[in-house]
Design a protein around this nucleic acid. Sequence first.
DNA 1: CGTTTCTTTGAAGTCTATCAAACTGCGTGG
DNA 2: CCACGCAGTTTGATAGACTTCAAAGAAACG
Lengths: 233, 233
Amino acid sequence: MDHAHQHEHSIERELECVSQVPIFQRLADEQLISVAQVTRPIHADKGGTVFSTGEVSQTLYIVNTGQVRLYHLGDDGREQVLRVLNPGDFIGEIALFTDEVHSSYAEATKKTELCTISRQSLTKLIAGMPELSMNLLGALADRLKSAERQATLLAIPDALPRLAGYLQELSGHQAGTFDLPMSKQDLAAYLGMTPESLSRKFRQLTTDGVIETVGRRQVRVTDADELATVAPE
Amino acid sequence: MDHAHQHEHSIERELECVSQVPIFQRLADEQLISVAQVTRPIHADKGGTVFSTGEVSQTLYIVNTGQVRLYHLGDDGREQVLRVLNPGDFIGEIALFTDEVHSSYAEATKKTELCTISRQSLTKLIAGMPELSMNLLGALADRLKSAERQATLLAIPDALPRLAGYLQELSGHQAGTFDLPMSKQDLAAYLGMTPESLSRKFRQLTTDGVIETVGRRQVRVTDADELATVAPE
DNA sequence: CGTTTCTTTGAAGTCTATCAAACTGCGTGG
DNA sequence: CCACGCAGTTTGATAGACTTCAAAGAAACG
């Protein structure tokens, strides 16, 4: 096999990955190449494992295409979904600063392409690219914001406003149709309730004329004002 | 008034603040001075407001001494505590990237000193100090971790393991005495339950010989193993 | 087109919230 | 320094909400 050609091909693929990811946006072409050079692509088929609990990692994973589901496994075997990673999302940022022992499983829900960057490489990159660190800081701040929002939602004892608040956020506070980012049973775990309760709350909102469920994963908000009334704050 | 002296004094005070804050650790002295020069100290008495909901901010607040309580106000008037800031903690990092509209209140629980830095100043500092951006990234990653941990806890339907998980984390997974970072009624809101439920769960853990409550704000873990059994995972 | 997984529905039991009131630790003022 | 007063905490009883268990129905997959 032609080694040079192999190398070329590799860089191409990595550039494609790197260039599509938000945290590498607004970088000059030559900077993008620097990033691509330390990037290693990973592939996972549907149902495939990206990493498991207990693994020690010094790697940042960035989803290029596909989708990755992050979840905990409780002692009772129930899966608690932490987050769903879509293209552009990343995980492993803690590995940049400490030897992270993953406390969750990462599983591809469909054919998925990821880029990985080692801690060492990324540290070097940051030292020479202030824009990159600003991008990373911005992405982390966004995630922090949504994690705190989720915590605020989950602190609400009643299930209905908890769901309403979640839907309100997903819908962008206005009427319209959108897709749920995960299955309803995963969503139930995410919102801290059982699938049965979630189903009943969906029904209640539908009966009250606030929303309509279009298929299995689509929701249409028909009365955004009423949704805001049910939702907290 | 002697202007030069005034300036000197000002820098001294700011240096003291800056030098005690983790995110500015490991910086060279001259870098610390650069930071101090763009820092503006703020004081708040007990019960004083640092900022309120709806305020637009481009400022990073860092707690130097004292304590700040961050909370939402629900429509029913109930306060939902988001976080308690102790010396070294900071808030407003989202303001670094977007015009943050504060969605919470920040109130000093005691005499408190803070340092503030504007977005513009901090952006400039980051550009010239890779170490600073690494520190900031590390601090954000830590906060993200704890926010996700809180979300995981809150997703548990049963109150007892929710409290147990919280205590376990506070105690550092080992027996010993420690202080609660907030009042029990605030803690109840933080953990998504009523003060009455919290009190009953505390009693249950005490009766079971897992913990002892020492005063109003101290807890002693006597049986860390048993606590781990009650806590999730 | 069958099979599997996800979702919905129903009934019963448990847990938590709610309401009301007593208690206690803590700060304050005398 | 001690007594007082208030907010925070605890306790009890009840009602309501959610979970649990069981099973049927619907959608996605090969």
